[in-house]
Design a protein around this nucleic acid. Structure first.
Lengths: 239, 239
DNA sequence: CGTAACCTTGATTAAGATCAATTCTCGTGG
DNA sequence: CCACGAGAATTGATCTTAATCAAGGTTACG
């Protein structure tokens, strides 16, 4: 693999070429189509993953089939690193399972598997990766805390408003289009079903919420596009 | 402070005496009574905390006063470390706030403040602390994921059953009393109100749930003690 | 242009929150 | 030792939100 790909991965971004080569040595690329499983929560833990291209959802399923999405991972980001550090020191990887399910959401999704035991050796001798990993974990923790806050303290409307808003802020941050949009909008990269499962609700309720927001002249939903007709009202709702 | 106290703190447990002395140099002990605030989510970030003795709750409050407890921190454990790693590299600590509120739940709760900037220097030169911190974060992440799973996929009864069960398992793990109890029980260290806020519900619903479990001959609640009358049924409920 | 996946809408139900009224518990001072 | 009062917990009645069940409509794509 070209080391340019690895450099774009947050936890490897500070490494020099020798270190990158060492990483390159141990990784393995896998390709998936939409709907393919990267792993089940019943499988033994092999190592963590990086999304090279595409999108992966990390989710849990209840006994009666209800799904909740914990995390949506886009390219350049890692997932399933947590089990790495739960038995540091000991080398036994047996009976370690993946903590959730992972499914590719787009055709042509490519992931990079970083095997646990080989990576650990690398980690223990490399402070840079260690610190990057810490900052990655910190980011995730903040995100999860926020997620819990939303799930427990906000109703569905507030959660939807927050979702749209943070997608919009995110979009503005990454690709700062010189030209201001006439009508600001976001593009959904996931199905409405997945959006509902991420927001801790179901598709029917999400649909009704969209309708309500539309009737209040706040948004306009057209397929995968959500137009923001009244940013100020949306902000108020989300607060 | 005696270094024996620091040794009991997970992230410092692998340090030698020189390193411990360095840590000892920078910390500051604070004392609280029940109900005292350790910090508000509006305060500027000074550093993270260790609970020396007592109990601290980390929580969020919604606009309309609803409270949700993210985390209960008992002695030997750390909290509010996340903001440490969100601006690694840059030294500006300005406009960093604590991400949630922290309140002491017991009289005589003592906390140790570890100042951010001084600790960062220590961290960047100490792989042991770095790795310990990673494993601490991993533990927290797993816990939060589990928490979200419970909040989104389980009803209140299931959550209560899980809470009692994991408290019980935890108790059995830490103090392995030689003598098996006639009737297994747990002792609540928090108020029912706090228990409800932790489980994402309210005290009335918790009370009703206790009653239901009591009527089904599964538990017996007596003040701060919850007796487990039918461990097997409790396990089934929790699953 | 047919069919499957996706989405919307309506009617109904259920879980749990809210509101309100007691009751219980326990520490304090008389 | 008892009475008091405050905070904590229980219980009942009612209300609200969102889930469930059911049916129909839309879209996309071979």
């Amino acid at each position: 693999m070209e080391s340019s790909t690895l450099k774009k991965v947050h936890i490897f971004s500070g490494l020099d070429d020798t270190e990158l080569a060492a990483v390159n040595e141990i990784i393995r690329v896998k390709k998936f189509n939409k709907g393919d499983m990267v792993f089940f929560d019943t499988e033994p833990y092999l190592g963590f993953y990086i999304v090279k291209t595409g999108l992966v959802k990390i989710y849990k399923i209840s006994k009666d089939g209800k799904e909740h999405i914990l995390h949506l991972v886009s390219s350049g980001n890692t997932f399933a690193e947590v089990p790495l550090f739960e038995n540091l020191g000991e080398i036994k990887e047996d009976d370690f399972r993946y903590p959730a399910n992972a499914m590719a959401l787009e055709d042509g999704t490519e992931t990079i598997l970083v095997p646990a035991h080989k990576f650990k050796l690398l980690l223990e001798n490399n402070r840079t990766i260690c610190l990057k990993m810490l900052s990655g974990f910190a980011k995730r923790l903040r995100h999860l805390n926020r997620h819990i806050e939303e799930l427990t303290l906000m109703d569905v409307t507030k959660r939807v408003a927050n979702f749209i808003l943070s997608e919009y802020i995110n979009k503005r941050k990454t690709k700062k289009d010189a030209k201001e949009e006439t009508l600001p909008y976001i593009t959904l990269h996931i199905s409405k079903n997945d959006m509902a499962a991420y927001l801790g609700t179901i598709i029917e309720t999400l649909s009704r919420t969209f309708k309500k927001l539309h009737d209040d002249n706040i948004i306009e939903v057209d397929g995968k596009k959500i137009y923001i007709k009244d940013l100020e009202k949306l902000r108020q709702l989300a607060a």
